[in-house]
């Protein structure tokens, strides 16, 4: 993928709020782990909030690569890093609406991993099929091409 910063943000928000929410439903209804809880949706929100910040850094790092490319393997590394960071913060400090005593590491890993795989696969498939212009606009699915001056 060769995303732009705006494209990264748009794709992240779109996929978290669609595929991410769908993938969180089984956890919300308590099909796994320590019973259902709305906390999973707060986790999604934090993945999105922190992620938009991380995206700025990824976008900067991408400039070191001649092709300004962001291959799957870097997406995976970024996903692992974000998970580690958020997991540590939740475990050690806690975040509003997710107090440390309600945090279960195994549940977090399961939920985060499931959401991440869903989003990763969708970014290759769903976005392309729903929005033919997505791949030409560096991941921006909102909006149309600007009118060209003539």
């Amino acid at each position: 993928m060769t995303p732009t910063l705006i494209g990264r943000w748009q794709t992240r928000i779109f996929l978290l709020s669609t595929v991410g929410v769908l993938a969180s439903l089984p956890f919300y209804f308590g099909l796994t782990g320590h019973g259902g809880s709305f906390t999973y949706f707060w986790v999604l929100l934090y993945v999105g909030l922190f992620g938009c910040g991380w995206d700025v850094i990824y976008n900067y790092l991408m400039g070191y690569m001649w092709d300004h490319d962001w291959p799957g393997v870097l997406q995976l590394l970024a996903g692992i890093w974000e998970g580690l960071f958020l997991g540590t913060v939740l475990m050690v400090i806690g975040l509003p609406y997710i107090p440390t005593q309600d945090f279960y590491l195994v549940d977090f890993i399961l939920h985060y991993g499931f959401v991440w795989v869903g989003i990763y696969l969708s970014s290759w498939v769903v976005m392309r099929i729903l929005f033919p212009r997505w791949r030409f606009r560096g991941g921006e699915w909102l909006g149309k091409w600007p009118h060209s001056p003539s």
Binding site: D67, H68, F136
Partner: peptide, 17 residues
């Protein structure tokens, strides 16, 4: 070396924009 005849982001990334 370059995978294609232009840097990859010229097809649809920040370089295209």
């Amino acid at each position: 070396f370059q995978p294609y005849n232009w840097p990859k982001a010229t097809w649809g990334g920040d370089l295209r924009a």
